[in-house]
């Protein structure tokens, strides 16, 4: 156990996956902005290297380096770690896994390869998974499978996600307190943004490379902080 430092506070990210403004339900068919339909069944992503912007300094969190958020297990969508006390106007996390951890052997904890977020034949982590079905998919059984990852340049799909505190006013976090960010994760934005994604054209992405990287460029649009507060 790490020692509790005197100036330590806590940071909690509460991810709320949504589709069309309502809490995501697996097994429900949704209409995407481009008119295609999609029934999601799996949504997971790595959230790592949390840090906060404190004045001009970036403060790294001191808890676990990586967490695996899985929409099927709501408890994993609340991520709690420790961070130095101070005044924060924004936070950030890596949606993905840094390249060093992709090449330095077998990792443990959230990054243990048995969790199924690892390509064994082409060493590297799957940073985010979105799976389901769609009548628009041209695949067998209409499967839609997006396994997004890849650490190799130029198609490194790990994306830094910035989280501005709600209202933009910096929050003061004292030792022992917890700052809680409620974050909407609008899953339809997986398909919109920098790279408009069509299920009919690209219903499957299972390897690192240009397509995975392009899809990852949409990720920053998924996350919006709706509320931020400090609790004792």
């Amino acid at each position: 156990m790490e020692e509790e430092l005197p100036d330590q506070a806590s940071l909690e990210l509460r991810f709320h996956p949504l589709m069309q403004g309502s809490p995501l339900e697996f097994g429900t068919t949704y209409t995407l902005p481009n008119g295609e339909t999609f029934e999601p069944r799996v949504f997971k992503f790595y959230c790592g290297q949390l840090s906060g912007q404190n004045a001009r300094q970036l403060k790294q969190s001191t808890g676990d380096a990586y967490f695996l958020a899985d929409a099927a297990t709501p408890a994993t969508m609340n991520i709690k770690t420790r961070i130095a006390a101070g005044t924060y106007q924004s936070f950030q996390f890596l949606l993905g896994v840094d390249s060093a951890r992709n090449v330095s052997g077998v990792q443990s904890g959230a990054l243990d390869p048995y969790k199924g977020m690892f390509w064994t034949w082409n060493s590297g982590y799957i940073f985010a998974k979105l799976e389901g079905r769609s009548p628009d998919a041209t695949t067998p059984n209409n499967l839609v499978e997006y396994h997004i990852g890849g650490f190799r340049v130029p198609f490194n799909a790990a994306q830094t996600i910035r989280l501005q505190v709600a209202d933009g006013a910096p929050l003061q976090l004292k030792a022992g307190q917890t700052i809680i960010l409620d974050i909407d994760v609008e899953l339809e934005k997986w398909f919109t943004g920098n790279y408009p994604l069509s299920i009919a054209a690209n219903g499957v992405c299972m390897t690192p490379g240009e397509l995975a990287w392009n899809i990852s460029r949409n990720f920053s649009g998924l996350f919006t902080v709706t509320q931020s507060r400090v609790e004792e």
Partner: peptide, 29 residues
């Protein structure tokens, strides 16, 4: 490792044949 060098560390190598459906066909778990 592998003919295409896709595996970046010796410790990771066994996971490929263990999980390949046409080889050992098992899950790590």
């Amino acid at each position: 490792f592998h003919h295409d060098g896709g595996i970046t560390h010796l410790d990771l190598q066994p996971l490929a044949p263990i999980t390949a459906p046409n080889e050992m066909a098992e899950t790590i778990e």
